[in-house]
Design a binder for these strands. Structure first.
Lengths: 219, 219
DNA sequence: AATGCATTTCTTGTATACAAGAATATTGAC
DNA sequence: GTCAATATTCTTGTATACAAGAAATGCATT
């Protein structure tokens, strides 16, 4: 037993929830889950607590754990905060960027370009993650970097959805180029604004996506 | 048993840690703690996990839990992020403020004034909390409001320290007046900037405070 | 004396047993 | 038939027992 069972359960549950295996508000029964995973209730409980801390699950005392998909509104709110945090990261990063740092970021951007040329959304997705995390780290504020990473992770499933939107990959890439350019020029305010908008636009795209779903349902 | 034991333990441990009962890096032994609190290891473990999630302790797999006081640098970093979040709250609040909202905020400010006149730092502290939370809520972004509240809570012990600094209460009050004025005028950018600086100055004061401690130790 | 290895001890992680609150079913009154 | 009170069942919360890594100790070897 090299890995903690609780962590594995947590991971698997998270994937299941994100993958939409449960209905919103569905109760997660400790006994059923422990039977399903062939473990005792203990690691399941720990996993549920962890998921509760990260916001995927809500726990009511002596009532149990319930999956809580963020509402449409809440998702928009989260993108709004993410935009602010990324803007801050960009602002600080432009101010504090080192030579080796900018090289790494440029390399990540080239990875994005390669993925775009190959038409590989999955690869683009991964390279894009690297790009963003490098900028978080370059902010020089480890607490900010950590918080940004946490929220980034939480928004992952929604962001992933968006690469499917027509031309989004190309547009995203252009935004990356502008951001790198701004960082290179050391313009903190511009970098912050560009990073902010780069994320805010994702919230808007998400909005569009939902609207088109609603339309499709109604039509 | 009307309350969860684990929650009580969590609360008590949190108070102890914040109160400085443990050295930085000290290991929190599950067995010792359970004996100390006269409970089993189970609720102690849950409490430690919760504290780990909120950042007060660090858990290393199969090694145990260790108290982690934020370093000086990290504290400054946290204030930096707090300033950004509060600035965002202020910006949105100014834009979205309702009539009843502004009345509540003005009332909280009057509470601060009363506390200042009475020279009651504890009361000022409480009224100040209300003031800030009202602005968080007025942002209309419940996710932002929640995150701001969490970080606010985490920085509480450091903020409390600062009211002892000479004239800080008066200065803080003046800043509150400016903020309320800006909100009333509906100037989002100004409100955001004022809120940001209102918090950033706390980080600076904290910096000063630490510097004077170091000086006192050296002298 | 110092280092490497084996053994022991200690602590965390998991399983299971028990306690108590919440939900549900049942029974009785109206 | 409906509602309320009570009994039963079900589920979470806590305690304890057991398993398995990690640290500590002691011994042998160089």
């Amino acid at each position: 037993m090299t890995e903690r069972t609780a962590d594995r359960i947590r991971e698997e549950l998270e994937q299941s929830i994100i993958g939409g295996a449960f209905a919103d508000g569905e109760r997660l029964d400790e006994v059923s889950l422990s039977e399903q995973f062939n473990v005792s209730r203990t690691p399941v409980r720990e996993a549920l607590h962890a998921l509760s801390a990260s916001g995927l699950v809500e726990q009511l005392p002596r009532r149990g754990a319930f999956v809580r998909y963020p509402s449409f509104r809440r998702t928009i709110e989260m993108f709004e905060v993410m935009a602010e945090l990324e803007g801050m990261c960009g602002r600080l990063a432009a101010r504090r960027m080192t030579d080796s740092g900018i090289v790494a970021i440029e390399k990540a951007m080239q990875g994005c370009e390669a993925a775009h040329l190959a038409g590989d959304t999955d690869q683009y997705y991964r390279e894009n993650e690297t790009f963003h995390h490098l900028i978080y780290a370059a902010s020089g504020n480890t607490f900010l970097s950590g918080e940004a990473s946490k929220l980034h992770r939480r928004l992952r499933p929604f962001r992933r959805l968006q690469l499917r939107v027509r031309n989004r990959m190309r547009q995203s890439l252009n935004e990356h180029r502008d951001i790198v350019e701004a960082i290179r020029s050391g313009d903190a305010d511009l970098t912050g604004r560009l990073m902010h908008d780069h994320v805010a636009i994702q919230g808007e795209k998400f909005n569009d996506l939902m609207a088109s779903y609603d339309e499709a349902r109604a039509g």
